[in-house]
């Protein structure tokens, strides 16, 4: 290869390696701050700021959802398999919100340990299947109703 071209090739390699390294280090140092939400474990351990807008994420504990009869108020608990946090919300929940499904919640954690939600988002997983297949799987695993989301299905809810 011509020496001038070789030099340019080295320059390209240099730019590629060092820019990747720099961006990689920035991303590495920000890795905690780039998380969209806190899991319940961190909410319970007191490592999150109180009374400030944060996001929490976890699986809705089956059987924990209680809706108010006269208003849109709803109470439920979320878990990551380690800890549980109670959530109160007033508003319309997304269609995919269900017990045993993952959610991401926008709101504030108060000193009484209740997370007051301003917005509830449903987090769906990467599995897609026709309803008949989902039913067959649910029957096979002797579960009642629909199959829980994979990320939430592995959690034992008896904590």
């Amino acid at each position: 290869m011509h020496p001038v071209r070789k030099q340019r090739l080295f320059l390209i390699g240099f730019v590629l390696v060092f820019s990747s390294l720099a961006i990689g280090l920035i991303v590495f140092s920000l890795r905690e701050n780039l998380n969209l939400f806190y899991p319940p474990q961190q909410l319970v351990s007191g490592s999150v700021p109180l009374d400030r807008d944060i996001r929490a994420g976890g699986c809705v504990v089956p059987g924990s959802v209680s809706r108010d009869q006269t208003s849109l108020k709803v109470l439920f608990r979320i878990t990551d398999g380690v800890a549980e946090v109670g959530v109160s919300y007033q508003g319309i929940l997304p269609d995919l919100f269900a017990e045993g499904e993952a959610v991401v919640i926008n709101g504030q954690l108060h000193s009484d340990g209740i997370f007051e939600a301003k917005e509830v988002l449903a987090k769906h997983d990467e599995n897609y299947m026709p309803p008949e297949v989902a039913e067959a799987i649910a029957e096979e695993s002797q579960q009642q109703g629909v199959e829980h989301q994979k990320t939430c299905g592995v959690i034992s809810y008896d904590s």
């Binding site: 969209l36 990467e126 599995n127 897609y128």
Partner: peptide, 21 residues
Amino acid sequence: DIWNTLHQPATIKFTSAPSMH
């Protein structure tokens, strides 16, 4: 995979079968 995101992980993976019917 690295961070907690609202976006779901990849359905089509290089290492295993797609998590799709």
